[in-house]
């Protein structure tokens, strides 16, 4: 059995059951959609083209960052909800491989979302914005830089966030009380990203400008810490599977 076979197994399990949001999820989706519409309408009327690019890409970045742990937690929780967990665990493969395959499948799924979102924003910024507002080449390049910076940041954080999400999926099952704390931690980490990117907003009214002044020291430190943490979490997940000390059966 190769890793590719296991990844196929993971992907097949999703293909049958399309994503159905929970009630809370439906509400959140509705709120996000309304907010999006309102923000877009206000920005379009005011003609703050810098603010617009900034808002659209920033919202997308935040969305994609939260989607990573969300997807991962769901994939873990799904094992129990869809009753596939004992089939999964009784596969003749080392536990590291099982988890790595799941991780890879989630990452692939998330990467598709990432591509979609940043492709959309890329087109939005470079083509639509420039054509509609007759932007100078220089401004388009500046805006592209911001989108690129955000995209790369998301890409680099994705694997780390997915690992956290897998952990959260298990915490949700094994120690439900802890899950709120973990979300708070996650929100803290993600809010920190504006500082990391050094997004600077200057000017007023329709002259507003956004600049990217990344703090490379912090970025380096963050990624160093994030990937050490991801490694520790992954090792912990493997250990948890190997110890087979689940809090309940079913």
């Amino acid at each position: 059995m190769t890793l590719a076979d296991l990844i196929t197994f993971e992907r097949k399990r999703w293909s049958g059951s399309p994503w159905r949001p929970t009630r809370l999820g439906r509400w959140l989706l509705a709120v996000i959609a309304v907010l999006w519409l309102v923000v877009s309408a206000v920005l379009a009327r005011s003609g703050w083209m810098w603010m617009r690019t900034f808002a659209v890409s920033w919202l997308a970045l935040i969305g994609i960052l939260y989607a990573a742990p969300g997807l991962a937690a769901k994939a873990m929780v799904r094992e129990w909800r869809e009753d596939t967990v004992w089939w999964w665990l009784s596969l003749p493969a080392p536990r590291e491989k099982l988890l790595l395959a799941k991780f890879t499948a989630i990452l692939a799924r998330w990467l598709r979302l990432w591509l979609l979102v940043f492709f959309y924003i890329g087109v939005y910024v470079t083509v639509l914005n420039a054509a509609t507002w007759g932007l100078s080449w220089q401004v388009v390049v500046e805006q592209c830089k911001i989108v690129l910076g955000e995209g790369l940041l998301a890409l680099a954080l994705g694997p780390f966030l997915i690992t956290i999400g897998m952990w959260m999926g298990i915490v949700r099952r094994e120690a439900r009380a802890l899950i709120a704390l973990m979300w708070l931690l996650l929100i803290g980490i993600l809010n920190f990203q504006a500082q990391i990117l050094g997004l600077k907003v200057s000017g007023q009214g329709s002259d507003i400008r956004v600049e990217l002044t990344p703090n490379y020291f912090w970025i380096g430190l963050e990624f160093f810490a994030a990937y050490i943490l991801a490694g520790v979490i992954f090792a912990g997940l493997v250990r948890w599977l190997k110890n087979r000390a689940y809090s309940r059966v079913g």
Binding site: D5, F9, S15, G16, D83, W86, W87, L91, P92, A93
Partner: peptide, 29 residues
């Protein structure tokens, strides 16, 4: 060398029978 059939739960429901057989052929020695 041990095949375990859980009391409930699905191998995976998102595929056709022949796909599942094919996949099982790759997963189980």
């Amino acid at each position: 060398r041990v095949a375990f059939l859980p009391d409930r739960g699905h191998f995976t429901r998102g595929m056709s029978v022949s796909e599942a057989l094919q996949l099982a052929g790759r997963l189980y020695p």
